[in-house]
């Protein structure tokens, strides 16, 4: 791959998204730098998930371009997309595990699809991934329907990081988890990001997650996007941002940050905004 001049792994330029008469994104620009954790936040209906789907090539933009790892997925056919897809991992909201396969089979799928690695080694690597995401080895033989919501997310994460991707996408990683589970999941993502040198892009509602692990924050407001570090964003005068961070939950999360760097169990509320 060439052209990683300023080290942006994702480059969105002038993105326009429309649903009927409603414009969700209007000329939106976004750069994601290598090795950072970027959190995308915004109120309901501001198009967070749509932005994620557009970057992943699941939805074609109504205007503008999206470059993922230097490639414009829109312009590529299935075959040419494969090398790009091999380098990304996605965790969908409820894991999106294939329900007819066991967890281990789910995690094996990327290997079968993209590599020619020896069967025995793949099995060992799956064990490594399961332990990396904090699942017991016994979960490997289970079907997704036999797991709890939190375990399904972890299993989905194991599948997402199976091939050591460059970029990991997370859609609402802590939604539906209890406060303790969510705090654990946050630190798991931070750990994995450091160990595997991942770039993480996540859509979240959760102020706690934001304060705990995001390097930069992108806020979707008025069909545009405002990007900055947590402090910069907090200083932004826009009323929605002020309400977001100065609401009871935002304040609690911030105090927690000031008091200690430990996971702040007591302040977490599972769904923000």
């Amino acid at each position: 791959m060439s052209g990683q001049a300023n080290d942006s792994v994702i480059r969105v330029r002038g993105l326009v998204t429309r649903f009927g008469a409603q414009t969700v994104h209007d000329g939106l620009d976004l750069d994601v730098r290598r090795g950072e954790i970027l959190a995308i936040v915004g109120g309901s209906g501001t198009g967070k998930s749509v932005l994620l789907r557009t970057i992943l090539g699941l939805k074609s933009p109504d205007g503008g371009t999206v470059e993922l790892l230097g490639a414009n997925l829109e312009a590529l056919d299935e075959e040419a997309r494969r090398p790009v897809l091999k380098r990304i991992g996605v965790l969908f909201q409820d894991g999106a595990l294939f329900s007819a396969r066991t967890v281990a089979q789910n995690a094996r799928l990327p290997f079968l699809e993209h590599t020619k690695v020896d069967h025995r080694l793949v099995t060992q690597l799956i064990r490594v991934k399961l332990s990396m995401v904090g699942l017991p080895q016994s979960a490997g033989a289970k079907l997704p329907s036999e797991l709890s919501g939190g375990m399904r997310k972890r299993a989905g994460l194991a599948r997402a990081i199976a091939l050591d991707p460059d970029i990991l996408f997370l859609d609402e990683p802590t939604a539906g988890l209890d406060p303790i589970g969510a705090a654990n999941f946050d630190s798991l993502i931070r750990d994995l990001q450091q160990a595997l040198a991942l770039t993480v892009v996540m859509v979240t509602h959760d102020v706690d997650t934001l304060c705990a692990i995001a390097d930069r924050v992108a806020v979707l407001i008025d069909s545009k996007i405002i990007v900055g570090t947590l402090d910069e964003i907090r200083a932004h005068p826009h009323p929605w941002i002020q309400a977001y961070f100065d609401g009871p939950r935002g304040r609690a999360a911030r105090t927690g940050l000031a008091v200690s760097a430990e996971p702040r169990v007591s302040t977490r509320v599972s769904k923000g905004t």
């Binding site: 066991t102 281990a104 099995t123 060992q124 799956i126 064990r127 490594v128 399961l130 332990s131 990396m132 017991p136 080895q137 016994s138 490997g140 033989a141 450091q194 160990a195 595997l196 040198a197």
Partner: peptide, 23 residues
């Protein structure tokens, strides 16, 4: 540091030897 962190994570993986497939 990153390599050390990654290698350290390998240690946990092989302690349990539960079959991944249904027996």
């Amino acid at each position: 540091d990153a390599q050390a962190a990654l290698l350290e994570r390998m240690g946990v993986a092989d302690e349990e030897r539960v079959p991944l497939l249904r027996k």
